[in-house]
Each structure stands twice: as structure tokens, then as C-alpha cells.
Design a protein around this nucleic acid. Structure first.
Lengths: 165, 165
DNA sequence: TTGTATTTGTTAGCAAAGCTAACGAAAGGC
DNA sequence: GCCTTTCGTTAGCTTTGCTAACAAATACAA
């Protein structure tokens, strides 16, 4: 398992190779895990882009449409339509910006929050069921890895939250 | 958050709560990390669905169009079009199935393989750079977590590989 | 061997999601 | 008071996703 250890100094070729190997393994594992969990999203009745955008709104509080588009790595016109669809479904609502009349703030409605939390529970329930087969030590490894992954995601870019994948 | 069932092996409420917490943290971390890495994909010149499908073809060897569609969680007609586009770009090629005349096997061309490996290198290079700030012990945690996550993804479903997210 | 059923991929046609370009409204600078 | 910038929307296109229908090949029963 853990061979990513002290076999080289900070910048040695051996250490570089170890980091590359861990990076590849971690990337692949994250892709496969989310791909598996994504199958649970059908039950929400929302498409993946809408579900992901709703997730950002619910967990990221009210935010401007532009910020939401950036968080979803999508252009403003695309987000305009997604928000309009979510608004038509009563899951979010638009508000004029209090200080700046140009911006529109997007806020989750109680119905939107409820829908999203149920969906997230479906994903995490599947994952938690899988965790039932692991030992306490293994759970601990995953918990610590999660913290490290969050730090890596934050590391060199301004990322934002989302359920989708 | 809702409490999921006690379907796990060790059924104490405390253990369930711990698993739920780890599941939520791991899910969120994976989402955020891949969201960050996805920003590197623009340089490939391919759309996300095409890049992801090409990834499965490159790493998953020649496979039938139906298997590719299942791996990408997409219907056959959708995959027909994606493969046609990749074929028009010279990145994959169709072959008749050697034993079964109904199936078409999809194989990556050298150009497709090259393009994809360069793209994967971009993602993992960004990730590896972030790993440079970690200690050997932390790298070890991530390596072990990656193995556990792969097992979890395989756990109760037949998932398949892909770059996209 | 013939005839029917099933499987596999494609085509046709529709809705949703992505983009760029162009535009109106609001802030900000001079 | 203009001019510029910023923000969101609208317009129009391409890509991606779906279901329904279909043709070809295989599998199987009689």
C-alpha cells in the first residue's frame, strides 16, 4: 500500500515519480467513485447541470448569477437559462442586488433546499453503505484523505461547491 | 441529515453516524477536487463528453459501442454520434466485430492515444504539483485512500473508467 | 433448414445545455 | 453630464441527451 514514503528528498526524481503515481491513482479513484454515485441522481428528477447548480446555491448561500456561472464553469447565458428553469420549478428565486442594481442574487427556496438535501442523502447513503465493509483504520484514512483533497482543490484556484460531476 | 439504514455490518448508531460523516466529507472532497482539475481540459480542444469517451477507449482497449455507452452512462444513439465525431477527427476508428457481425468495436488511433495522454498529463501534473507541498505521510494517506475509493466504486456496481467528470 | 425472436447499432426528431455575439441597464470615472 | 465598464439577458447556433423506429445479424425453436 503505502510506498510513497521517504525514498527521496524533496525534489528528487524518485519523489517526483511518487507524486505522479499518487496523483494518477487519486485522480482515477475520484473519477470512478463519482461516476458510481452519479447513478443515484436520476431519482431527483433534475438534470445533472440543474442539480449541480442547485447544489451551489443551497450550500453557497445567495450568490450572483455570474458567480454561480463561474462556480459551475459555464458562461453566463447558460446559467441564465438554468436558473430560469430552476425558478420555474420553484426551487430557486431571483432577487435584485441590494447595493448593485446590475446583479441578480440567486437564492434557494425551501423546496429547493429540501429537494437537494434528499438527493445528497441518496448519494452519501450509497457511499456510507459501502463504508460499512471497512475497518475503523480504513475509515480514518479516508477521512484524512478527504481533508487533504479539499486543501488540494483549494490550493491554486478559486473553486466552488457542487453536487454534480 | 437523514440517517441511512443500519445495513452496515457494525450496526451501532455511533458507527453509522461516523460513516455518514466520512461519506459526506469524501463525496464533497472528490467533487471539489475534480472540479478543480476539470479546468485543465480546455487545452485538449475536445468537449467533455468526447474527452471522457476517448479516455475509456484508450484505457479500456477496443470495446463495443454498447459497452462504451454503458461505461459513459449514456444511451447508444448518443454514443453513436460521439464516436462518429471522434472518428471524423481521426482519434478513434470503428471495426466490425470479428465474431459477431452486429457489433462495432471502437479502437483508439495513435493520434487519439497521444491526445488523451497529453490531456491526462495536464490534469495529473496540476495535481502532482499540489502534492509537492505534502509530507511523505500525507502522500501515503492519499495513496491508501485512492485504493479504498477504487474498491468502493467497484463495490456494488459495474463502473468503468473515464477522464471526464 | 426455416421461421421467429432477440440483440446491436443506426437514423430521425425532439428537448436541454453549451457557446459567441449583440444588447440594455446600471455603476463608476473623468 | 458623457464615456467606459460590468452584469445579466436575448438571439441564434452547435453539441449532447433522450425515445421511437428500423435494418442487419445472431440465436433459437420447431
Amino acid at each position: 500500500m503505502g510506498e510513497a514514503s521517504e525514498t527521496g528528498g524533496a525534489g528528487s526524481p524518485a519523489a517526483d515519480a511518487g507524486r505522479e503515481a499518487v496523483a494518477g491513482a487519486l485522480h482515477s479513484a475520484a473519477v470512478h467513485l463519482l461516476r458510481r454515485l452519479r447513478r443515484e441522481d436520476d431519482a431527483s428528477g433534475l438534470s445533472a447541470p440543474r442539480l449541480s447548480a442547485l447544489s451551489v446555491v443551497v450550500f453557497g448561500g445567495p450568490l450572483t448569477l455570474g458567480a454561480l456561472a463561474a462556480a459551475e464553469q459555464v458562461r453566463p447565458p447558460t446559467m441564465t437559462r438554468i436558473v430560469s428553469a430552476l425558478e420555474a420549478d420553484g426551487l430557486v428565486q431571483r432577487e435584485p442586488g441590494p447595493r448593485d442594481g446590475r446583479v441578480t442574487l440567486v437564492r434557494a427556496t425551501p423546496a429547493g433546499t429540501r429537494l437537494l438535501l434528499e438527493g445528497r442523502d441518496r448519494r452519501t447513503a450509497v457511499l456510507a453503505a459501502g463504508l460499512g465493509a471497512l475497518t475503523g483504520a480504513e475509515l480514518d484514512v479516508l477521512a484524512r484523505a478527504a481533508a487533504l483533497m479539499e486543501a488540494l482543490a483549494r490550493g491554486s484556484g478559486r473553486g466552488a461547491a457542487g453536487t454534480g460531476g
